[in-house]
Design a protein around this nucleic acid. Sequence first.
RNA 1: GCUACAUUCGUCUAGAGGUCUAGGACAUCAGAUUCUCAUUCUGAAGAUCGCGGGUUCGAAUCCCGCAUGUAGUACCA
Length: 511
Amino acid sequence: MSEVRVRFAPSPTGALHIGGVRTALYNYLFARQNGGKIILRIEDTDSSRFVAGAEQYIIDSFQWLGITFDEGVHIPNNEGISYRQSERKPIYKQYADELVKKGLAYIAFDTPEEIETKRKEFSNFQYDAQTRTMMKNSLTLPAAEVQRRLDNQEQYVVRIKIEPGEDIEINDLICGNVRINSSVLDDKVIWKSSDGLPTYHLANIVDDHLMKISHVIRGAEWLPSAPLHVLLYRYLGWADTMPQFAHLPLILKPDGNGKLSKRDGDRLGFPVFPLQWTDPKTGETSMGYREQGYLPEAIINFLALLGWNPGTEQEIFSMEELIQVFSFNRVSKSGAKFDIEKAKWFNHKYLQNKSDQEISVEFQQILIQKGIDTSLIYVEQIVALLKERISFVADLWEQSHYFFIAPTAYDEQVIRKRWKENMGNNLLEIIKLIETVQPFDKTKAHDLTMDYIQQNELHLGHTMNCFRLALVGAAKGPDLFEIVNLLGFEETKQRVVRAVDCIENKNSSHL
RNA sequence: GCUACAUUCGUCUAGAGGUCUAGGACAUCAGAUUCUCAUUCUGAAGAUCGCGGGUUCGAAUCCCGCAUGUAGUACCA
């Protein structure tokens, strides 16, 4: 088998959709598994839809995700090859001309308005073998007339000439054999004089051929036009080196049906783009996985399993493992609904593998934003204590704010249920006992507290929870003496005194 | 409308004629642990395999029909 060469070929019309990320990922896995090459090609043949910054966004996204390319717009090469279709403009014209010369394509002068009129006139109108005879093209117009229009610089398009009644079969690595009759295909525009650029269909075939692409791995929305592409390969005489196709199932919206769109993300509150993106035209900003605190490894793992499965019960895969085990025959054929909950779970798993220090450095940034200046060592101890309960670094604040800011309110429900008479005195007595532990030791403090509770026949749950309430403000958090340990005795004492005063004397003056 | 593709727990999926009283994961619920919350662990619930016909001794698995869904049907990719 010849060298595996695959490409990911996005259009720079905006941010990179998560479905596109998955397509790129599968391309990447397949290429790496086979020791092949993966190419990043920018399909900007529609000049009117170009969006500034989109290309760089795509490059940045893959860099963040750890998907690397061997060739592409962002990788310099010595051959002078451009991977941007707008810069390959001169290449395509000759193939369009060649097709016209061979009678496999023709020139059409119909304006968009004229075609629109036809569409209204005839239901199910399509520009094909049946209708092209009544249109303005080089098949119906006298040669001299065609030449006259060309000489007059009239705008035209080149349309492929589809011969009806032929079954075209495509052998898809995922969908199997799909047969379609050429009669249902229309004479697609493959080149347009208005900007001198080909349409996607021609550009993609020419580039894939020139770049020696061995496998075309793309979304299922392309399956219906695959027969046209097969025909183009044949017309151009490249049928024997035509790449293999693999059409990936769509990623569907979590609720209802249909393709996952940016709107769904906004509506349901999750990102659809890898990185935050601000549309230069509207100024509208969309959230990104990176900014929401997702780890690239988690996104990769999550996406890999959305539409593909290993056939084993393994769920967690590193990129290396994915490269080893990925295969097209384990890609499912039906669309997969997007489930953000699963993504969160993956993130939780991957976050647990991060060191306390790594997480702390990030968390410290959040603390600084909140105006809290504290040592990394202190933060690390807190992270060590709390990281297993979080899915995102940002969750840490909700879990740990009381380590930085003393409570300003006490959960009323806990007071009502557990703060019985004499609780204040008991807590102050316990504090006195703990004070005798010099230097402070959490185990000793714990034992002394337990002894006190037992000797005075106090209710363990009530007492401990009220102690906790004084330090945290609520009935939550890790082991109480771990909190005392981190807070330090002085701070603990102050908080207990304040809580007792506040709750029993209804004195909130020090809060 | 036309064409193609798809259809197994709420979701992602395993399943390649008997091993399926259909397995796993997320989510849900319960129990255990704990002063609390969370984590973790254990367990439970959850799918008449879209429907109807065949083929076969036997079908989630093969065939046909229907239904539903999705995609495409642009001088967009």
